[in-house]
Amino acid sequence: MNKKTSKWKILTNGIFKENPVLILLLGCCSVLAISVTVSGALGMGAAMTFVLVCSNVVISLLRKIIPDKIRIPCFIVVIATFVTLVQMLVQAFVPALYDALGIFLPLIVVNCIVLGRAEMFASKNGVLDSLLDGVGMGLGYTLVITCIAVVRELVGSGTLYGVRIIPEGYQIGIITQTPGGFFMFGAAMALLIYCLGKKGRHFDPRIGCDGKCGNCNFNCENREDNLKLYENQAALEAAAAATEAEKEGNKA
Protein backbone atom coordinates (compact mmCIF):
# COMPACT_ATOMS: atom_id res chain seq x y z
CA MET A 1 0.00 0.00 0.00
CA ASN A 2 2.73 2.37 1.02
CA LYS A 3 4.67 1.57 -2.12
CA LYS A 4 1.61 2.27 -4.23
CA THR A 5 1.10 5.72 -2.75
CA SER A 6 4.73 6.59 -3.31
CA LYS A 7 4.43 5.58 -7.00
CA TRP A 8 1.30 7.73 -7.22
CA LYS A 9 3.27 10.58 -5.64
CA ILE A 10 6.04 10.29 -8.23
CA LEU A 11 3.43 10.53 -10.97
CA THR A 12 1.57 13.54 -9.58
CA ASN A 13 4.73 15.26 -8.42
CA GLY A 14 5.32 16.78 -11.86
CA ILE A 15 1.78 18.03 -12.26
CA PHE A 16 1.43 20.33 -9.25
CA LYS A 17 4.01 20.18 -6.49
CA GLU A 18 7.11 20.20 -8.70
CA ASN A 19 5.52 21.44 -11.90
CA PRO A 20 8.49 21.73 -14.30
CA VAL A 21 7.36 25.03 -15.82
CA LEU A 22 5.71 26.97 -13.01
CA ILE A 23 7.67 25.78 -9.97
CA LEU A 24 11.04 24.53 -11.28
CA LEU A 25 10.99 27.26 -13.98
CA LEU A 26 12.54 25.00 -16.60
CA GLY A 27 11.86 25.00 -20.33
CA CYS A 28 10.25 28.45 -20.28
CA CYS A 29 11.45 29.35 -23.77
CA SER A 30 9.21 26.90 -25.60
CA VAL A 31 6.29 27.71 -23.29
CA LEU A 32 6.53 31.41 -24.14
CA ALA A 33 6.94 30.79 -27.86
CA ILE A 34 4.54 27.92 -28.56
CA SER A 35 1.62 28.86 -26.30
CA VAL A 36 0.04 31.04 -29.00
CA THR A 37 -2.32 28.36 -30.36
CA VAL A 38 -3.94 25.45 -28.54
CA SER A 39 -3.16 22.98 -31.33
CA GLY A 40 0.53 23.91 -31.31
CA ALA A 41 0.63 23.67 -27.51
CA LEU A 42 -0.93 20.21 -27.48
CA GLY A 43 1.49 19.00 -30.17
CA MET A 44 4.46 20.43 -28.33
CA GLY A 45 3.24 18.85 -25.09
CA ALA A 46 2.90 15.44 -26.76
CA ALA A 47 6.36 15.64 -28.33
CA MET A 48 7.84 16.75 -25.04
CA THR A 49 6.14 13.96 -23.05
CA PHE A 50 7.32 11.31 -25.53
CA VAL A 51 10.93 12.50 -25.35
CA LEU A 52 10.80 12.82 -21.55
CA VAL A 53 9.43 9.32 -20.99
CA CYS A 54 11.79 7.61 -23.46
CA SER A 55 14.93 9.44 -22.37
CA ASN A 56 14.09 8.92 -18.68
CA VAL A 57 13.68 5.16 -19.21
CA VAL A 58 16.85 4.73 -21.27
CA ILE A 59 18.98 6.90 -19.02
CA SER A 60 17.68 5.05 -15.97
CA LEU A 61 18.63 1.74 -17.63
CA LEU A 62 22.10 3.04 -18.43
CA ARG A 63 22.61 4.85 -15.12
CA LYS A 64 25.11 2.31 -13.77
CA ILE A 65 27.18 2.17 -16.97
CA ILE A 66 27.48 5.89 -17.66
CA PRO A 67 30.69 7.26 -16.05
CA ASP A 68 29.99 10.20 -13.77
CA LYS A 69 32.40 12.60 -15.44
CA ILE A 70 30.90 12.42 -18.92
CA ARG A 71 27.28 11.91 -17.91
CA ILE A 72 25.97 15.15 -19.49
CA PRO A 73 27.21 14.34 -23.04
CA CYS A 74 25.78 10.83 -22.64
CA PHE A 75 22.39 12.23 -21.60
CA ILE A 76 22.42 14.63 -24.54
CA VAL A 77 23.12 11.80 -27.00
CA VAL A 78 20.19 9.77 -25.65
CA ILE A 79 17.86 12.78 -25.68
CA ALA A 80 18.96 13.86 -29.17
CA THR A 81 18.18 10.38 -30.50
CA PHE A 82 14.58 10.56 -29.34
CA VAL A 83 14.15 14.16 -30.46
CA THR A 84 15.33 13.21 -33.95
CA LEU A 85 12.83 10.35 -33.94
CA VAL A 86 9.98 12.67 -32.95
CA GLN A 87 11.07 15.25 -35.47
CA MET A 88 11.01 12.76 -38.34
CA LEU A 89 7.68 11.28 -37.26
CA VAL A 90 6.02 14.70 -36.95
CA GLN A 91 7.45 15.85 -40.27
CA ALA A 92 6.15 12.73 -41.99
CA PHE A 93 2.70 12.43 -40.47
CA VAL A 94 1.69 15.92 -39.19
CA PRO A 95 3.46 18.43 -41.49
CA ALA A 96 1.20 21.30 -40.36
CA LEU A 97 2.31 20.80 -36.76
CA TYR A 98 5.91 20.53 -37.93
CA ASP A 99 5.64 23.96 -39.54
CA ALA A 100 3.88 25.42 -36.48
CA LEU A 101 6.53 24.23 -34.02
CA GLY A 102 9.45 25.26 -36.22
CA ILE A 103 12.79 25.47 -34.47
CA PHE A 104 11.29 24.61 -31.07
CA LEU A 105 10.89 20.95 -31.98
CA PRO A 106 14.63 20.23 -32.50
CA LEU A 107 15.34 22.52 -29.56
CA ILE A 108 13.79 19.95 -27.20
CA VAL A 109 17.32 18.46 -27.20
CA VAL A 110 18.55 21.30 -25.06
CA ASN A 111 15.28 21.77 -23.15
CA CYS A 112 16.12 22.08 -19.48
CA ILE A 113 13.22 19.89 -18.36
CA VAL A 114 14.48 16.80 -20.21
CA LEU A 115 18.08 17.25 -19.18
CA GLY A 116 17.04 18.33 -15.69
CA ARG A 117 14.94 15.21 -15.08
CA ALA A 118 17.74 13.02 -16.44
CA GLU A 119 20.21 14.60 -14.04
CA MET A 120 17.93 15.02 -11.01
CA PHE A 121 15.81 11.88 -11.26
CA ALA A 122 16.48 9.25 -13.93
CA SER A 123 20.19 8.90 -13.18
CA LYS A 124 19.40 8.15 -9.53
CA ASN A 125 16.22 6.06 -9.66
CA GLY A 126 14.86 2.80 -11.04
CA VAL A 127 13.25 2.30 -14.44
CA LEU A 128 9.60 2.24 -13.33
CA ASP A 129 10.00 5.32 -11.13
CA SER A 130 11.76 7.16 -13.96
CA LEU A 131 8.98 6.24 -16.36
CA LEU A 132 6.34 7.57 -13.98
CA ASP A 133 8.37 10.72 -13.40
CA GLY A 134 8.64 11.26 -17.16
CA VAL A 135 4.88 10.85 -17.60
CA GLY A 136 4.13 13.20 -14.69
CA MET A 137 6.55 15.89 -15.81
CA GLY A 138 5.34 15.63 -19.40
CA LEU A 139 1.72 15.97 -18.29
CA GLY A 140 2.61 18.93 -16.08
CA TYR A 141 4.31 20.65 -19.01
CA THR A 142 1.41 19.91 -21.36
CA LEU A 143 -1.14 21.11 -18.82
CA VAL A 144 0.59 24.47 -18.28
CA ILE A 145 1.35 25.21 -21.92
CA THR A 146 -2.21 24.28 -22.95
CA CYS A 147 -3.83 26.39 -20.24
CA ILE A 148 -1.74 29.41 -21.22
CA ALA A 149 -2.48 28.76 -24.90
CA VAL A 150 -6.25 28.61 -24.30
CA VAL A 151 -6.23 32.11 -22.79
CA ARG A 152 -3.77 33.53 -25.31
CA GLU A 153 -5.57 32.15 -28.35
CA LEU A 154 -9.01 33.16 -27.06
CA VAL A 155 -8.09 36.72 -26.08
CA GLY A 156 -5.40 37.39 -28.66
CA SER A 157 -6.83 35.76 -31.78
CA GLY A 158 -10.47 35.23 -30.79
CA THR A 159 -10.36 31.53 -31.66
CA LEU A 160 -10.16 28.26 -29.75
CA TYR A 161 -8.44 25.31 -31.44
CA GLY A 162 -8.89 27.23 -34.70
CA VAL A 163 -12.66 27.77 -34.20
CA ARG A 164 -13.67 31.43 -34.11
CA ILE A 165 -15.38 32.36 -30.85
CA ILE A 166 -14.96 36.12 -30.57
CA PRO A 167 -15.94 38.03 -33.75
CA GLU A 168 -13.22 39.58 -35.90
CA GLY A 169 -12.01 42.99 -34.76
CA TYR A 170 -12.33 42.42 -31.00
CA GLN A 171 -8.94 40.88 -30.30
CA ILE A 172 -6.22 42.23 -28.05
CA GLY A 173 -3.22 41.59 -30.27
CA ILE A 174 -0.54 42.11 -27.64
CA ILE A 175 -1.53 38.87 -25.90
CA THR A 176 -0.30 36.78 -28.85
CA GLN A 177 2.95 38.74 -29.01
CA THR A 178 6.00 38.28 -26.79
CA PRO A 179 4.97 40.69 -23.97
CA GLY A 180 1.62 38.92 -23.68
CA GLY A 181 3.43 35.59 -23.38
CA PHE A 182 5.57 36.82 -20.52
CA PHE A 183 2.56 38.35 -18.82
CA MET A 184 0.44 35.20 -19.06
CA PHE A 185 3.38 33.11 -17.84
CA GLY A 186 3.83 35.31 -14.78
CA ALA A 187 0.09 35.32 -14.10
CA ALA A 188 -0.07 31.50 -14.30
CA MET A 189 2.88 31.21 -11.90
CA ALA A 190 1.25 33.59 -9.41
CA LEU A 191 -2.05 31.74 -9.68
CA LEU A 192 -0.53 28.32 -8.95
CA ILE A 193 1.42 29.61 -5.94
CA TYR A 194 -1.72 31.40 -4.68
CA CYS A 195 -3.74 28.18 -5.02
CA LEU A 196 -1.07 26.13 -3.24
CA GLY A 197 -1.08 28.71 -0.43
CA LYS A 198 -4.88 28.50 -0.14
CA LYS A 199 -4.65 24.75 0.32
CA GLY A 200 -2.16 25.28 3.13
CA ARG A 201 0.62 23.76 1.05
CA HIS A 202 2.97 26.68 0.84
CA PHE A 203 5.41 26.96 -1.96
CA ASP A 204 8.66 25.40 -0.82
CA PRO A 205 11.73 27.15 -2.25
CA ARG A 206 13.87 24.09 -1.49
CA ILE A 207 12.18 22.03 -4.21
CA GLY A 208 14.85 20.76 -6.58
CA CYS A 209 17.50 21.48 -3.95
CA ASP A 210 20.60 19.33 -4.25
CA GLY A 211 22.25 20.67 -1.10
CA LYS A 212 24.67 22.83 -3.05
CA CYS A 213 23.90 26.02 -1.18
CA GLY A 214 26.68 27.91 -2.94
CA ASN A 215 24.44 28.13 -6.02
CA CYS A 216 21.38 29.34 -4.15
CA ASN A 217 20.29 32.56 -2.46
CA PHE A 218 17.55 31.17 -0.30
CA ASN A 219 18.13 31.20 3.45
CA CYS A 220 16.85 27.84 4.66
CA GLU A 221 17.66 26.20 7.98
CA ASN A 222 20.22 23.85 6.44
CA ARG A 223 22.10 26.57 4.61
CA GLU A 224 24.94 27.18 7.06
CA ASP A 225 25.59 23.50 7.77
CA ASN A 226 25.54 22.67 4.09
CA LEU A 227 27.88 25.52 3.21
CA LYS A 228 30.33 24.34 5.87
CA LEU A 229 30.03 20.80 4.60
CA TYR A 230 30.59 22.02 1.08
CA GLU A 231 33.69 23.98 2.10
CA ASN A 232 35.06 20.99 4.07
CA GLN A 233 34.46 18.72 1.14
CA ALA A 234 36.19 21.15 -1.22
CA ALA A 235 39.14 21.37 1.17
CA LEU A 236 39.32 17.56 1.44
CA GLU A 237 39.21 17.19 -2.34
CA ALA A 238 41.91 19.80 -2.77
CA ALA A 239 44.08 18.00 -0.20
CA ALA A 240 43.53 14.66 -1.94
CA ALA A 241 44.42 16.18 -5.30
CA ALA A 242 47.56 17.70 -3.79
CA THR A 243 48.75 14.38 -2.32
CA GLU A 244 48.02 12.63 -5.62
CA ALA A 245 50.01 15.23 -7.52
CA GLU A 246 52.84 14.77 -5.02
CA LYS A 247 52.77 11.01 -5.59
CA GLU A 248 52.87 11.52 -9.35
CA GLY A 249 55.79 13.89 -8.87
CA ASN A 250 57.63 11.32 -6.72
CA LYS A 251 57.04 8.63 -9.33
CA ALA A 252 58.45 10.85 -12.05
Binding site: G173, I174, I175, Q177, P179
Partner: peptide
Protein backbone atom coordinates in the same frame (compact mmCIF):
# COMPACT_ATOMS: atom_id res chain seq x y z
CA UNK B 1 2.33 50.70 -25.60
CA UNK B 2 -0.25 47.98 -24.91
CA UNK B 3 -2.86 49.52 -27.20
CA UNK B 4 -0.17 50.46 -29.73
CA UNK B 5 0.87 46.81 -30.12
CA UNK B 6 -2.71 45.53 -29.97
CA UNK B 7 -4.45 47.96 -32.31
CA UNK B 8 -1.67 49.38 -34.44
Amino acid sequence: IVIMFSFT
